[in-house]
Nucleic acid binder design. Structure first.
Length: 563
RNA sequence: UGGGGCGUAGCCAAGUGGUCUAAGGCACCGGCUUUUGAUGCCGGCAUCCGGAGGUUCGAAUCCUCCCGCCCCAGCCA
């Protein structure tokens, strides 16, 4: 089984951020470690977020501290309740618990507003009447310094009056902004009088229409950290440039604590996209079936595909945390998934591309139950009965009319073992008018029940099968990478041009072992010799649907490809 | 021509002057085992750490210069 409850523990791994935290604790600078995971509720969580979640909650665990879940909901035009709920579910499913520490930046709107007035009173912020375009012009460029806004030297009194009127709704959206008064000539553009508040008449998911002006990320984030007592504020590299501003605000405001920001490299994965902008585009344009499409690198997509949370956690600790831009190969995640599932997943038999086999010397109308092992790597998982009868299905690819020597499966006159059942020998095959093989005629050796011959003779191949009369009919969905190239849209191309048209393959009429009818949503099992599969939420008792989580390694197929 | 970062094998990543003729994992390549051509096991896979100089008895680790890559000019986060 691979439900979250039975997942194995994550291993902790050292990294430069843990070293910093450990040093702070050892030097007595920090008594209680507090971290936070701060998503903006404008989309679903993806693998990159999982890396951050594992880091933040992992560090809190390691140092007996705590990790908050805080929604960075400062932009009401992009944020929705649906995303808040989905994010909470995903974090929980990943195996983390924020306890009582659920926060929203919007909880701090009043305090932030008061601090904005404080900044104004101390001459550290001013109201600017310039338009967005003008502000951009005045900001200068990467290589040229900016120039001061004509409104930069308003008196604190005038600024306070204007700011209060901004809050009172006296001005149109975008008419004025509040800016920090720092340094228009700074090489760091974030320090060129960054905007702290903008007028926005949008209904906020939590504060409704209480406010018509909202703080920017820069003004809300660090102060929220300080209010919550966050000690280590971990974010990705693109915020490194914001750290001077983060520190400037903490320094110029009477905040209750001095949190520190540390940055690490964001995660990239080959053959997929991991930016919210692109994921949103895939969903909105219908290239996938929603945020939880099993092909998406979202947490909910992985969950639906059957990847256990523990495999994702394991992957996150294995890739590490550094400041070097990195792109992990999907093969690495696949490996983590297989490694965990190999140890935990129950085995079942399923024929995806059925070919009927009639065992001619098996009494018509008879049947029996054979015993199959649930997990050869874990005896504790026990056994199960599997029905056997005269007509069965085997995988079409397990028969060749004219097989090469190295082919260990079925062919005219060849003998193989049916897993957990009997040796059978192919005596004949039937073709239709088009030359397709439609049925195999075989004989079985009753002495080989269970899979061993008393006379000691061996067979090279063992194939899986399902009794025709007892088979569960199902749809099975196979997934391939969403994109055909490692880095979709590399250079200046459109990433949509790299979409893999064959990323989803739907098989119908698959024949599954009957016990699979009782498989619970959320459990991933192994279909022997094929891969790991789980029930899809689309399934109904009358029409089961399974997703392939990941295939088994297949050295035979690999060898075939080479020759 | 600005500011901030980063460069160790195809990928991720240890390493912070001597035990480095550089961990570990993924991928790949051999072999053994096997009632899943799965798993497991064994072995192989960087004389070299972006490059060039220099310091030192000694450098991937220190210094200098050079090269390459990433991020920043949202009233997004």
């Amino acid at each position: 089984m691979s439900t979250p409850e039975t997942d194995t523990e994550i291993e902790t791994a050292g990294n430069f951020i843990r070293d910093i935290v450990a040093d702070d604790v050892n030097q007595g600078r920090i008594a209680d470690v507090v971290t936070r995971f701060p998503p903006e509720p404008n989309g679903y969580l993806h693998l990159g977020h999982a890396k951050s979640i594992c880091l933040n909650f992992g560090i809190a665990d390691d140092f007996s501290g705590r990790c908050h879940l805080r929604f960075d909901d400062t932009n009401p035009v992009k944020e929705e309740i649906e995303f808040i709920d989905a994010i909470k579910e995903d974090v929980r499913w990943l195996g983390f618990d924020w306890g009582e520490h659920l926060y929203f930046a919007s909880d701090n709107f009043q305090q932030l507003y008061d601090w904005a007035e404080y900044l104004i009173e101390n001459g550290n912020a001013y109201v600017d009447d310039l338009s967005a375009d003008q502000i951009r012009e005045y900001r200068g460029t990467l290589t040229e310094p900016g120039k001061p806004s004509p409104h930069r030297d308003r008196t604190p009194e005038e600024n306070l009056d204007l700011f209060r009127r901004m809050a009172a709704g006296d001005f149109d959206d975008g008419a004025r902004v509040l800016r920090a008064k720092i340094d228009m000539a700074s090489g760091n553009i974030n320090m060129r009088d960054p905007v702290l508040y903008r007028i926005l008449r949008a209904e906020h998911p939590r504060t409704g229409t209480d406010w018509c002006l909202y703080p920017t990320y820069d003004f809300a984030h660090g102060q929220s950290d300080a209010i919550e007592g966050v000690t280590h504020s971990l974010c990705t590299l693109e915020f490194e440039d914001h750290r001077p501003l983060y520190d400037w605000l903490v320094e110029h405001l009477p905040v209750p604590a001095t949190p520190r920001q540390y940055e690490f490299a964001r995660l990239n994965l080959t053959n997929t996209v991991l930016s919210k902008r692109r994921l949103t585009q895939l969903v909105d344009a219908g290239h996938v079936n929603g945020w939880d499409d099993p092909r998406m690198a979202t947490i909910s997509g992985f969950r639906r595909r059957g990847i256990p949370a523990a495999a994702i956690r394991d992957f996150c600790t294995r890739i590490g945390v550094t400041k070097a831009a990195s792109t992990a190969e999907t093969a690495y995640l696949d490996h983590c998934t297989r490694e965990l599932l190999n140890k935990t997943a129950r085995r079942r038999m399923a024929v995806l591309d059925p070919l009927k086999v009639v065992i001619e010397n098996y009494p018509e109308g008879d049947g029996e139950e054979l015993t199959a092992v649930n997990n050869p790597n874990d005896d504790a998982q026990g056994t199960r009965p599997v029905p056997f009868s005269r007509e069965i299905y085997i995988e079409r690819s397990d028969f060749m009319e004219d097989p090469p020597k190295k082919f260990f499966r079925l062919g005219p006159g060849r003998e193989v073992r049916l897993r957990f059942a009997f040796f059978i020998t192919c005596t004949d095959f039937i073709k239709d008018a088009d030359g397709n093989v439609t049925e195999l005629r075989c004989t079985y050796d009753p002495e080989t029940r269970g899979g061993n011959a008393p006379d000691g003779r061996k067979v090279k191949g063992t194939i899986h099968w399902v009794s025709a009369a007892h088979a569960l009919n199902a749809e099975v969905r196979l997934y391939e990478p969403l994109f055909t190239v490692a880095d979709p849209g590399a250079g200046n191309g459109d990433f949509l041009d790299d979409l893999n048209p064959y990323s989803l393959k739907v098989l119908t009429g698959c024949k599954l072992e009957p016990g699979l009818a009782d498989l619970a949503l959320g459990e991933t099992v192994q279909f022997e010799r094929q891969g790991y599969f789980c029930l899809d939420p689309d399934a109904t008792p009358a029409a089961p649907v399974f997703n392939r989580t990941v295939g088994l390694r297949d050295s035979w197929a690999k060898a075939q490809k080479k020759s």
